[in-house]
Design a protein around this nucleic acid. Structure first.
Lengths: 215, 215
DNA sequence: GCACCGCGTTAAGACGTGTTAATCCATCGC
DNA sequence: GCGATGGATTAACACGTCTTAACGCGGTGC
């Protein structure tokens, strides 16, 4: 019955009739949200909830007997996102689904918001994700390498002094005879595709520092 | 119909027939601009607009009923870039698309103002790329050589004192008996094609400094 | 003419950076 | 605890660039 109503309401629904197969379906990655009845054969709602939570943070709504505050509280404490007292109107369930999905969307959006990449030519950096791509292929950078590249990228086309690189990317002032930066730059260069003209994307500006090329 | 026309006009078009899939397509990152009909099944145009805007600042054009100022204003207020009254001629839509895309391009270009070379005759310098061309062939300059040439190029046709060259290009005041500049200029001259009349492109203005010839 | 100055040119030495390998350090699973 | 692992740092050497020094030459003022 719920399925029919929800589908008419624009949701794509899949039903499973015991906890185990429900958990499997939920973890298949094809769905945005799970609705669990507390009363189920095999694993009950709480066991299923726990099983899904071991591997996923997807939103989960519990269907509980009306007025059963104990169940409700237990569910929320174990990681459910909401509960709906049963029997419930399909309308109400649909509304709650929408609220939770919208909340999720917003969050994803604001996550993506932060994810405006830094761009320097074919190079893209997502600082919040600590992810870097060169020419579409992901780069495998260590943490400090990413930090250095990020600082360079924030000043594309202009040299950045080793002192600044050290304080901003490594969080420590540059000391005499400190060659760390040079070594890190070297390994970044090895991981970075060269420019069309064969030069490195990171140019050294002698006695000034390093400069990321924008082209 | 619009699709046919736009494709003949050189655009690569993808059509979706409801708001949700339209938003997905728009956010896929494969497209430069979105055109939304206000009247759509599923999410309507405004909902779709909002959805795209949560994650992207891509340009969006709304197709609204002719004369419906309310729709128009609502669209623009919610982040649309332009609107086109419907029914509209494909010509008009194409024209607006081009205007907006051109505006976007310009902006991208000025962001990359890398692409503005310093020019002195056959000599071109891209400071942000640290790249130099003479007569179309790339020059192999050391870091300080590039710096010196850049400073000279910023004052084409006028002499630049050695003191200025030293502070601006090497970052150090000129001291007595310092002949560094002269030596560097010498090696730049060797790498630079001479003028048609055989003279060097870098002229020495005695007791004043050096001057890059604009011709 | 002569001493001096400014610059051109060259070469040797000083210096900064590239590169590699060894060492140190933190983390993790047992 | 232990070793294993991976990354950061240090050390050492190689190399290219910058600076310094030296000499040459033309111009200038005495």
């Amino acid at each position: 019955m719920l399925r029919d109503y929800l589908e008419r309401d624009g949701f794509a629904v899949r039903c499973e009739y015991d906890g185990l197969s429900g958990a499997d379906a939920a973890l298949s990655g094809h769905y945005d949200i799970a609705v669990l009845d507390v009363m189920m054969p095999g694993l009950d709602g709480f066991q299923t909830l726990a099983r899904i939570r071991t591997a996923s943070t997807m939103p989960i709504i519990m269907l509980t007997a009306r007025g059963d505050d104990a169940d409700r509280i237990a569910g929320l404490e174990h990681g459910a996102d909401d509960y709906v007292p049963k029997p419930c109107s399909p309308r109400e369930l649909a509304a709650r689904l929408r609220v939770i999905l919208k909340r999720l969307q917003k969050q994803a959006a604001s996550d993506t918001q932060a994810a405006q990449p830094l761009i320097a030519g074919t190079l893209k950096l997502w600082p919040t994700l600590r992810r870097a791509e060169d020419n579409g292929t992901p780069m495998e950078l260590t943490s400090t390498e990413f930090g250095l590249l990020e600082v360079l990228a924030r000043h594309v086309g202009h040299p950045v002094s080793k002192a600044d690189l050290s304080t901003e990317a490594i969080g420590r002032p540059l000391t005499r005879f400190d060659r760390s930066i040079d070594v890190h730059i070297h390994s970044i260069r090895n991981k970075l595709k060269p420019l069309p003209d064969g030069r490195s994307r990171i140019q050294t500006v002698i006695r000034k520092g390093y400069q990321l090329i924008s082209g």
